[in-house]
């Protein structure tokens, strides 16, 4: 199976690889997936007082599509409000990266990672966690 140019591009030059301090109150961390399933994503957001995501970082254990999905997700998150970030749908990632059907689970995982990071941030700041709209694959 050949990868799309966009997957290759993100895979070769992944954006925003790294780690934010998970103990900071303004940082939300999402860790989703499982090693035995072959993909684990950790996505982190840093949020300012206006509820704007000022920084986003990721690290991913997984195939090229999983790495590209999380790289693109961090790119999209920066500068968005929390509400805008919640509106990111896995199918947006599928479309942008031209993922084939067998790789759709990578985009679902990225969406889970976004929502999980937002929930972590919410809980840290005294807000209730939102229900996760999509189940893990």
């Amino acid at each position: 199976m050949a990868y799309s140019e966009k997957v290759m591009e993100h895979y070769t030059n992944p954006r925003n690889v790294g780690t934010l301090n998970k103990d900071n109150k303004n940082v939300g961390t999402g860790l989703v997936g499982a090693p035995e399933c072959g993909d684990v994503m950790r996505l982190q957001i840093e949020v300012n007082d206006e509820n704007i995501i000022t920084d986003a970082k990721f690290k991913t254990f997984g195939c090229g599509s999983a790495i590209a999905s999380s790289s693109l997700a961090t790119e999209w998150l920066k500068g968005k409000s929390i509400d805008e970030a919640l509106a990111i749908d896995n199918m947006d990632l599928v479309e942008e990266l031209a993922l084939p059907p067998v790789k759709i689970h990578c985009s679902v995982l990225a969406e889970d990672a976004i929502k999980s990071a937002i929930n972590d941030y919410r809980v840290k700041n005294g807000l209730e966690a939102l229900a996760m709209p999509k189940s893990h694959h």
Binding site: T19, A34, P35, E36, V40, K59, F61, H136, H137
Partner: peptide, 24 residues
């Protein structure tokens, strides 16, 4: 490995078997 959260956790001494992974 530079991209891998598991590698980072391993290096920090986190026991990966003790984490409750959301198996799909």
């Amino acid at each position: 490995r530079d991209l891998s959260p598991l590698w980072e956790m391993f290096k920090e001494g986190v026991d990966l078997d003790k984490i409750e992974w959301a198996t799909h």
